[in-house]
Design a protein around this nucleic acid. Sequence first.
DNA 1: ATAACATTGTTATTTTTGTAACAAAAAGAA
DNA 2: TTCTTTTTGTTACAAAAATAACAATGTTAT
Lengths: 210, 210
Amino acid sequence: MNSVKNLPEKTIERLSQYRRVLLDCLRQGKYNIYSHELASLLHINPVQVRRDIMLIGHNGTLRKGYDVKRLSDMIGTIIDSKEGQKVAVVGVGNLGRAIMTYFQGKRTKLVIAAAFDTDPAKVNRVIAGIRCYAASEMEEVIRKEGITIGVITVPPDKAAESAEKLVMAGIRGILNYTPVALNVEPHAYLEEYDMVTSLEKVAFFVKNRS
Amino acid sequence: MNSVKNLPEKTIERLSQYRRVLLDCLRQGKYNIYSHELASLLHINPVQVRRDIMLIGHNGTLRKGYDVKRLSDMIGTIIDSKEGQKVAVVGVGNLGRAIMTYFQGKRTKLVIAAAFDTDPAKVNRVIAGIRCYAASEMEEVIRKEGITIGVITVPPDKAAESAEKLVMAGIRGILNYTPVALNVEPHAYLEEYDMVTSLEKVAFFVKNRS
DNA sequence: ATAACATTGTTATTTTTGTAACAAAAAGAA
DNA sequence: TTCTTTTTGTTACAAAAATAACAATGTTAT
Ligand SMILES: NC(=O)c1ccc[n+]([C@@H]2O[C@H](COP(=O)([O-])OP(=O)(O)OC[C@H]3O[C@@H](n4cnc5c(N)ncnc54)[C@H](O)[C@@H]3O)[C@@H](O)[C@H]2O)c1
Ligand SMILES: NC(=O)c1ccc[n+]([C@@H]2O[C@H](COP(=O)([O-])OP(=O)(O)OC[C@H]3O[C@@H](n4cnc5c(N)ncnc54)[C@H](O)[C@@H]3O)[C@@H](O)[C@H]2O)c1
């Protein structure tokens, strides 16, 4: 079977990036785009763009390229859920707040619906338009609101317990920004990102350039 | 040729992660570690750990595993530069400040040596121990300090001009956190990361779970 | 009309990445 | 000692991802 559920992981990432570019195009009044344009905007190969687009079953027009609006909508049908999904941020510190600010109004289908912290100075306040609850209310709020995704931005030594609480609350996916590998399988899909690793990677390739 | 310069990109990423875990072990007084321990801490396969370690030419001890300190040092000789590298953060907003706070004292060979902003309220202040300069001083400061890596955290519409300035100043690598694809090749190595993509990826896999 | 061209869609091939399999060897048990 | 266990190092294999090749076809120019 070759359905949309079996799309390669890398294709999913690129679809998100294509849409970002496409939405930009729409804002600029550009209604058609060639595979090589999309490719060069994202520093990838045009063939890869065409292949990804083929995989999701979209059709371009010869000599006119892809219809920006249609393609962007098509990507939406693949990566968005119809009813949307709600996100919670756990840990309203520097990074948590930055993310909350950043996301406001970015995507209609993916909304940060709550934040959690233990600091009394933050609890029950509204930050970047998002209500901050006490960490102890996590399970209740997550269930009540139907939140499916958690973003973890607590101090490293609180990461494991936060993940556990999220899982207890029935969360289905976690995006972990702490430098602590979590153990939530098979309860939730896990994505981890460490900025130090990215920076060290850049440093390595800088060092070894010809 | 199979030198250290030709290590797979993914191996480089993992080396950074291994070291993070190893340094943690040292702090906890653990001086030896098995491939399967490292693997399970990072949710990967033990064979992959052994393979990566083989590729960098390190030797473990049968039945005792790897010497944590020696392996961590060995990884240092691969991914660090001897003299270290200096990093600049461009854009001292929510995210920039979060990164500056986060990095303080994390790595001895990779130091944030300067920050840049256009906001007079930030210029010439010291934030998280890092001096913030005016964006107009970028070229001068970067050359004087010998900064090789730039992290871009300015508003999206200023990203391209910031990258250009960095390149003008002779920067060798850029880590871009804005959702704008930059064009700096062949002057600098570029790594881009967009949080929306990560979150959309999590959302997709949550949606399509059995 | 017709030829030249540019662009998509798709299959084939190559490259990269990950996993399995297993020999070798050290440690400990019998 | 000899056998069993455990773990590394390495080669062989598999899977995933990226790229190349190219046919098909609409568009434009002549
Ligand atoms: N700042 C960065 O750029 C950056 C980058 C990469 C990773 N990180 C990681 O992200 C995490 C957060 O970084 P930060 O700079 O925002 O730290 P921070 O200290 O500014 O924020 C942490 C927040 O979590 C809250 N908190 C503590 N315990 C909690 C709990 N049990 N439940 C809920 N909230 C709790 C704290 O009150 C605080 O508001 C850290 O683990 C850090 O290592 C940060
Ligand atoms: N906040 C997040 O979690 C997050 C996540 C992903 C991506 N981003 C991206 O990172 C970037 C920064 O986000 P933020 O939330 O920190 O924004 P912000 O508005 O808080 O900060 C931007 C900073 O850049 C400064 N600046 C403006 N023009 C400049 C220039 N030409 N040179 C130097 N500095 C300049 C501003 O004065 C401000 O201090 C944005 O592009 C955003 O899209 C942010």
